[in-house]
């Protein structure tokens, strides 16, 4: 009985001490309360609205759209011409229309039954002259679409936690202080972290890529080298982001919160699992600010549409910008 009492006393003491520590780490405590609320809010915003429609029509431009897009069961999506036609060729939309005062240009995928039905409806309901455009391309399976997302997500977690969390752990344990007492410079230390994690991330991604390709036989029609370049820049962008997060953070719990704050929006908004087509413009604007969005845009363009540098250079340029910003911030703000 005495042993049990002693044990309970010790347990109570450590429980109390831990509670005090937790409560006094205000950043971590606040974040742990705030984060679940943010998740619920984000999910409710993204998934709000009516159930999915039967058909999808993508509208280009601001012209007066055909009456068809207002029909019940038809979902209207707005996009620019490149994106709209890319979606049509993947059969992610059934019809693309671009209307002016006097005429309507439309595109349909010759392999899509839904597209043929909508084309008939359009002909019966639209009074303006119609011009037909034809797109080609097989419907992509969900697996074809989601594999780049999973690869990108894997890269994101590996890069951000593998660098961000580890550097904070080094700092908290005094290991960085030990390194500071050597001639090692912070640039050397940071570069070594980046390179080491880049190799790990790329190797892991390559293994997952080859392994899942053998099992799922997903679509990969583009250049493997170009895809490697996308992975390289994407990996670097994520790693430097992880470093920027870790450059001054001293608490592992707070670092955990910050890393979640960065990864969760990307998981939700960078089209890892589902397309954001049809979501509010501001959601798409936020998504465009996230590095994973550009990694996945470029990777999907290469893998599914055989895109080359001319098609994906804007994404690549943005990723280079993320790398430069992340590394500059890390070097400037880093504290041993």
């Amino acid at each position: 009985m005495r042993a049990l009492k002693r044990s309970l006393r010790r347990t109570g003491a450590i429980f109390h001490a831990r509670n005090l520590e937790y409560l006094r780490d205000r950043a971590s405590f606040g974040w742990n309360l705030l984060f679940p609320v943010l998740i619920v809010l984000a999910l409710s915003i993204v998934f709000s609205g009516p159930p999915r429609a039967l058909f999808s029509v993508t509208v280009i431009g601001d012209g007066m759209a055909p009456e068809l897009v207002e029909f019940p069961g038809v979902e209207r999506i707005d996009a620019n011409q490149d994106r709209a036609l890319a979606r049509l060729s993947r059969q992610q939309t059934d019809l693309v229309v671009e209307a002016s005062e006097t005429a309507v240009q439309y595109w349909v995928n010759g392999n899509s039954a839904s597209g043929a039905l909508l084309e008939l409806l359009l002909k019966y309901t639209e009074s303006r002259p119609l011009t037909r455009g034809l797109a080609d391309g097989e419907a992509i399976r969900y697996v074809d679409w989601v594999v780049p997302g999973i690869l990108g997500m894997n890269m994101m977690y590996s890069a951000l936690w593998g660098v961000g969390y580890v550097v904070v752990r080094y700092r908290q344990s005094g290991y960085l202080r030990r390194l500071k007492a050597t001639p090692l410079t912070q640039f050397e230390f940071l570069s070594a972290q980046v390179l080491s994690r880049l190799i790990v991330t790329l190797t892991a991604s390559l293994i997952v890529f080859v392994g899942t390709h053998l099992i799922l036989d997903y679509k990969m029609v583009g250049s493997a080298l170009l895809l490697l370049l996308v992975a390289l820049l994407g990996g670097l962008a994520m790693i430097t982001l992880g470093l920027a997060i870790a450059c001054r953070t001293e608490s592992k719990e707070f670092a955990d919160g910050l890393l979640n704050a960065v990864t969760f929006p990307m998981l939700l908004l960078s089209e890892v699992w589902f397309s954001l087509d049809g979501s509010p413009v501001w959601v798409q604007t936020v998504a465009a600010c996230l590095p994973l969005t550009h990694v996945l845009d470029a990777a999907r363009a290469v893998m599914l549409d055989n895109a080359g540098i001319p098609e994906i250079w804007p994404s690549l340029l943005i990723l280079v910008g993320f790398c430069a910003a992340g590394m500059t911030l890390s070097i400037r703000l880093f504290k041993w």
Partner: peptide, 15 residues
């Protein structure tokens, strides 16, 4: 100076 001195810290974590 860091190359002229050696430091054994009171509490150093190792990797």
């Amino acid at each position: 100076y860091q190359e002229r001195i050696g430091i054994q810290f009171q509490a150093t974590a190792l990797q």
